[in-house]
């Protein structure tokens, strides 16, 4: 464990807590894309299949349970909670996210480190996570008023993978044979997708005005 990875995990945890806080306290998921939440639930479900077979540390297992639990409960809230589900703007959140799942699955079947069931699904989860934010970014561009909590959620979610990139550089420099091109490229693509969001987020923060993405 290094400080970059810890910072990344804590940022990721914070993004999930911000979203759960928003949904649980103000009982609203306005501006939040259910499609992105469903993709993330699939990402964690396929990434953490080894939760019962391999144990690294209490921290590792605990965080996996938190990410699994939070992502599925957010999907449950947005789909079935009587109050929250009414605040979900179904008409705007129309990104066909299944068009993201299939190509990622095909790519994982083509490009992976080992051709085993767990490894292919794990690789699939990496590719899917890289693009999972797209429905959310599209929704943000459609809904003009981005409330602070949603903006913070996306910002933290984008930041965590940036810390992971620093972690991979650190581990490459300090651990022999630590080379994982698939993870690195997927993580880089994921972070780059946030680039324009980050730009407008910082602009709104600097000029102290509401966050608005160009249509």
């Amino acid at each position: 464990m290094n400080i970059f990875r810890l910072a990344g995990d804590m940022t990721h945890l914070a993004s999930v807590l911000v979203l759960l806080l928003k949904i649980h306290t103000i009982k609203s998921c306005a501006g939040v894309s259910l499609k992105t939440q469903e993709l993330y639930a699939i990402v964690f479900a396929t990434r953490y299949l080894d939760i019962f077979t391999s144990f690294y540390s209490i921290y590792n297992t605990l965080m996996k349970l938190i990410f699994l639990g939070s992502s599925f409960s957010i999907v449950w809230y947005m789909r079935y909670h009587k109050t929250v589900r009414r605040t979900y703007d179904r008409e705007q959140d129309t990104f066909r996210h299944w068009f993201l799942v299939l190509p990622c699955l095909l790519l994982a079947l083509l490009i992976h480190e080992k051709f085993t069931f767990l490894e292919v699904l794990w690789t699939f989860s990496l590719y899917l996570e890289a693009v999972a934010i797209l429905p959310q970014l599209v929704l943000l561009q459609r809904t003009r008023n981005i409330d602070n909590l949603t903006g913070q959620y996306v910002f933290l979610l984008g930041g965590y993978r940036g810390f992971y990139i620093l972690n991979w550089i650190y581990r490459y420099l300090t651990e022999p044979h630590f080379v994982h091109w698939i993870t690195w490229i997927a993580g880089l693509v994921q972070t780059l997708l946030y680039a324009d969001f980050f730009y407008y987020y910082f602009q709104s923060w600097k000029n102290n005005k509401k966050l608005q993405l160009p249509a």
Binding site: M1, D50, S54, Y56, N60, M63, Y164, P176, H177
Partner: peptide, 10 residues
């Protein structure tokens, strides 16, 4: 944390 492969990451 042990193991050099990246499965020990979240």
């Amino acid at each position: 944390w042990p193991s050099s492969h990246s499965k020990d990451e979240l």
